[in-house]
Design a protein around this nucleic acid. Structure first.
Lengths: 102, 102
DNA sequence: TTAATCAGTTACTTTATGTAACTTACTGTA
DNA sequence: TACAGTAAGTTACATAAAGTAACTGATTAA
């Protein structure tokens, strides 16, 4: 009856990826810096959920939000180093899906 | 205004991993065949959700369910080849979490 | 003046998870 | 024999997460 406690860091990473849309947002930003509406139309997510997701990811320093003071203002999202370092995870999911998902 | 359609296979893989507990169940079964109650206490999931998850994963042929007709009956869950092939994904998440999650 | 875009927010609905108690064998203990 | 316990779930109900559609406020273009 030992509670084999799973590593909390691993658990946290897993809970990040088990939020819907997280992986797709990161996948999209691996293609380069993008604006809110670009991400939205690329992956087909609602404004509300994208807004939530971007806030989460920003607070975890996986993405950064840049305000470019033009008129009208432009807001650009991109991956931080922490975010970019998730690339192998995303690439493995891609590879696996090509081999195994019918 | 092109809809850059994300690969449906990739999307499907992502939606699998974005269900809560899926990655942890697979992680646990990478340690070897386990019984319902073993998985349950190992990862701290409720019977109801574990039951749902195992049904999903079985229907996608990621795990197999074996009934061993002893008295009382023993039920064992293990990964199929498709399930085992997700090991690199899980290992990458582990590695990333060790390096980047505080 | 009206329409359109961008980056969201708001209010409300639906779906997913979580909680706790219960079930149906069967076994082991008093 | 009666009582408690385990394994592998299921049921009914409660809360949290995600989806939908309409709306904002600033700005520009027709």
């Amino acid at each position: 009856m030992t509670q084999p406690t799973i590593c909390p860091k691993f658990e946290k990473a897993v809970s990040l990826l088990s939020q819907k849309w997280t992986a797709l947002v990161i996948y999209q930003l691996l293609l380069g810096t993008q604006r809110f509406s670009e991400i939205q139309t690329a992956i087909g997510i609602s404004g509300k959920v994208l807004s939530d997701r971007l806030k989460d990811l920003e607070s975890q320093e996986i993405i950064k939000r840049e305000v470019i003071p033009k008129t009208p203002v432009v807001i650009k999202y991109s991956l931080t180093d922490k975010g970019k370092s998730m690339k192998p995870i995303i690439r493995d999911i891609e590879k696996w899906s090509q081999l195994w998902v019918k």
